[in-house]
Amino acid sequence: MTRSTPMTRSIQTALILLALAGPAFAQSSHQGHGGHGAAPAPGAGAPKGQMGAGTGMMNMDSMQSMMKTMMPAPGDTASTKDFKSADMKMMHDMAVPYTGNADVDFRTKMIPHHQGAIDMARAALAYAKDETTKTLAAQIIKDQEREIAEMREWLSKNAPK
């Protein structure tokens, strides 16, 4: 078995996210094609890099641009590598199926989102020079850990088994 490194996990996550975005992009671009009297695809005409109006979906250019910023680059500093790793892990961990239960879905998406904030705050503690940044990072860790515990407890009591 090969050992997974942060870089290979980042690349794997990027590929997964792009693979997931592809069918959604194809579907949205197909909905309004051809001039058969059909309405334009939802979000069509949204400025490049913005979410489609009313769809909650990013366009493909925006998604690819976002993913590119998270990929490790040769000139990245140690802090940038750690921030990018936290970004990619968070995006990967947020890719859980929706249940249709807004209470459950909110928590299952927010837990990895909060963990991402914790991971970024830890990187800030390791590399930041400004004391206010360090104080803020420490407070974020404390607050987000408490909120994660609260969400997990709620899920253990209320989420369908």
Rank of each mutant, 00 (worst) to 15 (best):
M1D: 07
M1A: 15
M1E: 05
R3G: 14
T5I: 00
P6G: 13
M7V: 10
M7N: 00
M7W: 01
T8W: 00
R9S: 11
R9Q: 13
S10N: 11
I11N: 00
A14T: 06
L15R: 04
I16K: 15
I16F: 10
A19I: 06
A19M: 07
G22K: 13
P23G: 01
A24L: 12
A26C: 14
Q27L: 15
S28V: 07
S28Y: 13
Q31M: 08
H33T: 11
G34V: 10
G35I: 13
G35M: 07
A38C: 08
A39Q: 09
A39W: 05
P40N: 07
P40T: 00
A41Y: 02
P42R: 03
P42Q: 07
G45C: 06
A46W: 02
G49I: 03
G49M: 06
Q50V: 09
Q50W: 14
M51C: 11
M51N: 09
G52W: 12
A53N: 08
A53Y: 03
G56K: 08
G56R: 09
M57K: 10
M57Y: 10
M58R: 11
N59L: 05
M60C: 01
M60R: 07
Q64N: 08
K68S: 08
K68M: 12
T69N: 14
M70I: 04
M70V: 04
M71R: 05
M71E: 11
A73T: 00
A78N: 04
S79N: 09
D82E: 15
D82M: 15
F83K: 06
S85Y: 01
D87L: 07
M88D: 03
K89G: 02
H92G: 14
D93A: 13
P97C: 10
P97Y: 03
Y98H: 04
T99C: 10
N101S: 13
F106A: 06
F106R: 02
T108W: 05
T108G: 02
K109T: 14
M110D: 10
I111M: 15
P112E: 14
P112F: 00
P112H: 08
H114E: 12
G116N: 09
D119M: 15
M120C: 04
R122T: 12
A123H: 01
A124E: 14
A124Q: 10
A126P: 01
A126F: 01
A128V: 05
K129W: 02
E131Y: 01
E131A: 12
E131R: 06
K134M: 00
K134H: 05
K134C: 08
T135L: 09
T135M: 08
L136K: 10
L136Q: 14
A137C: 12
A138N: 12
Q139D: 15
Q139P: 03
I140M: 14
I141G: 03
K142W: 05
D143G: 10
Q144V: 15
R146L: 13
R146F: 04
I148S: 11
I148N: 13
A149I: 00
E150K: 13
E153F: 03
L155P: 04
N158L: 06
N158F: 04
A159E: 06
P160I: 07
K161P: 06
